[in-house]
Design a protein around this nucleic acid. Structure first.
Lengths: 250, 250
DNA sequence: CGTCCTACTTGAACGCAGTGCAAGTCGCTG
DNA sequence: CAGCGACTTGCACTGCGTTCAAGTAGGACG
């Protein structure tokens, strides 16, 4: 084997770096080749296609999120930690959320994460399909929460790529948004309090939503009628005298 | 004016149709021109750019969702209806979810929807930032819930475009996913019960998650009084700053 | 030491997609 | 009828994903 050979891992790592820097639309094979110090087409021998490379990169980053030890903490803490870690990871790699909408991202990395996710909700006392749905609910919320910031990041990067007057264009588009919002009473009110910034969905919203969801899930578990939330003593309802929670049918 | 002139509305409508048929990556100006019976470049006079066209189309569809009358139903019914309508709309136009990750979609259509969304949660009793967060939580969940199905649809359409052996490729990629999943105990168990179909996240999950979230929100209403927020001692994604959102654009 | 095989790299080139441009075309208005 | 302005069109440029035939290099084997 030649000494200075590219490796799949090296390529995937470089792709992740490039994606972090330039966003999903900023990734192209020639730029990647340059970053690797090789011809663009050399990459094809190792990864086959750009789609496949993105799939690879999109799975790799899941390894960055830690899997909490369920033996040393109650499920709610574990769930919060996993969701928060995922949130942070998606913020770091905002291109992943976009990729999630266009590619089937599933590999060892995500599988490892999903598996542990199920473990958390099974430890909570959910059984069978309920554990799946609980996990999916939280997962889905975290994903959706990352979508708008991802769009903002993508937009910003595109402006930066298109020309020098990025500031001006950004300002213009914000101004137009304000103008539209001003025509609706509640949106207008939010404009005044300056709470509505398209680019920055506050982290508070994430924590608020996450805890609300976990509250809702917890309620399904034991019907432990203490709405005073917070307290999450080790639920571990033994074997889930799982009340058949009522689910809205279609 | 010449008699057979294109109009912006006509173009946007054709674009939506094409997007529904072919997906986000299937939309290109020449195909759109053909569908309109005109040259591809004629479109540019009316909409400026493809990005702008997508922004226009992506806002237009929001008008399809109904705004429940808050005077004749309780907030939870209204919230459920709005979320369900949104869910249905996103399923109809799965490209929109992808577009949401790459473009800043905000116009009169979405503004109208958002405004009413806030109205619902204010009617519920949430005040100020809490109403925003409640609305964002549900909205975000619905969006995230549509993401994976959108990816599946996109993937299928791409396969259909690439060549005739779509079935084979689809089968192969599912087989690979199964193989990976089989290495993780909980995923493997789900494989056996045949509950895991990547392309079809059951609608049950949506209803389950939505009701759980509304449960959680409802609980916050009753147990008011503590703005000291959230349990979760750990986590702390970083700045747990005040409710004053920072505005910084990038 | 030479030779071959395999693993890998490269540059040229093809096709498609977004889009700017200059030259139309058509109908209305003066 | 001349001309203007609203629209349309074909051409062509660029950038990107990808293919392909032609390399190159290092180890294995004789």
């Amino acid at each position: 084997m030649p000494r200075d050979t590219l490796t799949r891992e090296q390529i995937v790592k470089a792709a992740i770096d490039l994606l972090d820097d330039e966003g999903l639309e900023g990734l192209n094979m020639r730029a990647l080749g340059k970053r690797l110090g090789s011809a663009a087409t050399a990459v094809y021998w190792h990864v086959g296609s750009k789609d496949n490379l993105i799939t690879l990169a999109g799975d790799e980053v899941w390894h960055q999120i830690a899997l909490p030890d369920l033996a040393t903490m109650d499920w709610r803490t574990a769930a919060t930690q996993m969701a928060t870690d995922l949130h942070a990871m998606l913020t770091r790699h905002s291109w992943l959320v976009q990729a999630f909408g266009s590619y089937m991202i599933f590999g060892p990395g995500k599988a490892r994460h999903d598996d542990h996710g199920y473990a958390v909700y099974e430890a909570a006392g959910f059984t069978g399909a309920q554990a799946d749905q609980a996990a999916a609910t939280v997962f889905t919320f975290v994903l959706g929460n990352a979508l708008v910031p991802a769009a903002a990041a993508s937009f910003t990067k595109k402006l930066g790529r298109d020309g020098g007057n990025a500031e001006a264009l950004m300002h213009e588009s914000m101004a137009k948004a304000h103008e539209i919002a001003a025509q609706f009473p509640r949106l207008r009110a939010r404009l005044d309090t300056a709470a509505t910034d398209y680019a920055a969905t506050p982290d508070n919203t994430f924590q608020f939503g996450l805890q609300a969801i976990l509250d809702g899930l917890e309620a399904q578990l034991g019907a432990h009628s203490t709405p005073s939330d917070l307290a999450s003593p080790s639920a571990a309802g033994g074997d889930a005298s799982a009340e058949h929670a009522r689910i809205g049918d279609v």
